[in-house]
Amino acid sequence: MALRKFRIFRGDSRETGELVEFEVECGEGMVVLDAVHRIQAEQAPDLACRWNCKAGKCGSCGADVNGKPKLMCMTRLSDYPEDEVITITPMRAFPVIRDLATDVSINYENNRRLPHFQPRPADFEDGEFRMYQWEVERPQEFRKCIECFLCQNVCHVLRTHDKHQEFIGPAFFVRTAVYEMHPADVGDRREHLKEHGGIGLCNITKCCTEVCPEKIKITDNAIIPLKERVADKYYDPLRWLLRKLTGRG
């Protein structure tokens, strides 16, 4: 056991809140969330933070740890030098509710507006689709998403430019990709991606891929193929000419 120093954001807005220093006994194998819980139990019972599974499966405990988006439950204290102060602040891209809890409701709004799964008729009488493992593996990668929103948090379009109203962000490109690449889906989400999703605003800096705790290749496997599909529909020169001539989309 050794004493470690933490600085944690306390307050109900970025303007009025402040970093408060705590010292905690830390033992072998502890993660950042353990330290936050210990502070809660022993020093600051009203310290707000979200968590559920404590095993990297639910995506509730996202925060900025020393400025980097992390799941607190999967970030080991031993990753930081013993004398380093660990600073924990709420996810930058979302408004603060209190302390480490942020208002992520925009994400639920975005999800509600995404076009849903549109299946073809079942292939077997009992209702199953005939889908092969190699086909389902592609969308299965996107279904690993635990909705921690760290990718939204790191994305400069949202974090720096606050374009939440025009740009649904990497998490929802991933969510769209699940159904776009689902072998039994017959929907077309390209208009939604362009008009509502703002996919053109992504300039593929791959920051989202870097922070994804599930190691989903968000940019390469979801965003770029979706951009290509949108480009095929809207920017194919032949289709452009056809639209001009017939006046139809």
Partner: peptide
């Protein structure tokens, strides 16, 4: 499955 679940498959493409 009808609602979009992606279960792992057998070699003949069933759940």
């Amino acid at each position: 499955e009808q609602w979009g679940a992606l279960f792992d498959r057998t070699h003949i493409g069933r759940i």
